[in-house]
Each structure stands twice: as C-alpha cells, then as structure tokens.
Design a protein around this nucleic acid. Structure first.
Lengths: 110, 110
DNA sequence: TTGACATGCAAGTATATACTTGCCTATTAT
DNA sequence: ATAATAGGCAAGTATATACTTGCATGTCAA
C-alpha cells in the first residue's frame, strides 16, 4: 500500500462508522481496554483491534499497556488540526462563523 | 452497496486526496466546469467526474448546468456540521479550545 | 448541417478495506 | 502448575474503491 499522508490517515480513520463509534466510546470513558471496547461493537475482537490500529495510525488513539490489558486513550489533537485546515478555512461567511461560535461558547453546552 | 449515513458519505468524501484537492480548487475559484477542474488532477475526466459525484452525494458540491457546461459550487454546510458534531464535542480542555479560538479570531488571518 | 466541444454512461480491472477464523503468547488467579 | 483471561498474528474472503477505456449524447459555432 502506498504511504498515506497524515490527512489521509486521519480522514480515512474517521470514514468508518465503527471507528467513529469507538471514538465516541472513548470520549464517554477514556482509557478503556480492548475487551471493554469490544462489548459495544457487533464484531469480533479482531475486527475491533484492526479498527483501533487505524485510529492509532491516525494518532487519534494512544495506547498504554497495564499487565495483560491494553488501555486506549483518545487524542483530540488531530481533530483540532482538521478544524484548522479544513473547516476554518472553508467557513465562507466569516462573520456567520464567528457568530455561531459566540453562540456556542456563550449559550450552549457549558 | 449498503445505504450510507450522512456522516459516512461526508467523511468518505473527505478521505481522498484527489477529492480534497477538488474542494481546494473550488475554494480558490467557485463555479468551475468539469473541464477546468480536470486540468489540475493527473487523472482522466471520468475519474474526476466520479470524484465529483462522491462530493455531490456528500452535499459538499452543488451543480448547475449552463448549456453544455456543468458548473460546480462548493457547499460548506456539511463541513460546519463536522465541526459541530465531531470537533467541538471532542475539544477536551474546553478553556484551551476557547483560547485558541480567541487567538484565531483576534490575531489571525483576518 | 456538420464538426468540435463538454459531458454522460457502462463495463472492466487492480487494489484496498472490513471482516472472519484459527492458532499462538503473555499475564493473572487458584 | 494449570486454567482462565487479555490480547497478538496470519491468512482468507467478500465487497468497495479508484481508476481506465470506449462509445453515446447534447450543445454550440461556422
């Protein structure tokens, strides 16, 4: 397979529903083991392992071993980079973007 | 092929270097014809057509016919949705995110 | 009305992807 | 020591993806 750029690794990692679900699961609870993550996907352990490997390659997930357990941690830095490079840049009406941000920061989810 | 969710269509559309290049080209100049877009990709016209179809399916590109020419327009709304659903939510340290936004809005690129 | 231009449609191929099954290894608990 | 647990590695399969080539169609200009 040809070497993929960071952006390719990242977007391809995000381009699968199962992998996005894994990110959601880690967002809900960080540092889960492979076994824990498997419980939420209708898929064999190997399938999940392979998805996690893709997320690792994209640097969206980091791993730490604890004995025989493999702990998985979310890394959100690449997502920030997606924003900087592919979303911020494409915000056509700049003021609209600004106002929607203000709305989010002031009103929402705080 | 199984029906894909909006998010799938969107991320898969973004998960190809050629398609991202097309988006960049349309960002540089909106409303280009197929022929114009072809000039920047080392690929046959059909290849480009197929990539554009993927972008259309993801609602990232909109099309208008002018006589025999097909004009392509960027639609940034789905990118905004990526931000709302996949980036904003995952900004782990909320205050850091806020400060980097402030930096962008006040200092940068203005 | 004929030719050149802009694009569409269909089929074919090679590679990549998403998954599985089967077996191997390392850690932990009894 | 042994068995259960947590996970790794490799190979195999089916489907999807990224392309290509060849031919057909609609539009414009002379």
């Amino acid at each position: 397979m040809a070497a993929m750029s960071d952006a390719d690794l990242l977007f391809k990692a995000l381009a699968d529903k199962g992998r996005r679900k894994l990110l959601d699961r880690l967002h809900a609870q960080d540092g889960q083991t492979l076994g824990q993550l498997c419980r939420h996907l209708a898929m064999t352990r190997q399938g999940v392992t392979q998805h996690l490997a893709v997320l690792e390659a994209a640097n969206l997930v980091t791993v730490r071993w604890r004995g025989r357990e493999k702990l998985h941690f979310l890394n959100t830095v690449p997502l920030q980079q997606v924003y900087d490079r592919w979303i911020c840049k494409f915000e056509k009406p700049r003021l609209k973007a600004l106002s929607s941000l203000k709305r989010r920061l002031e009103g929402g989810q705080g």
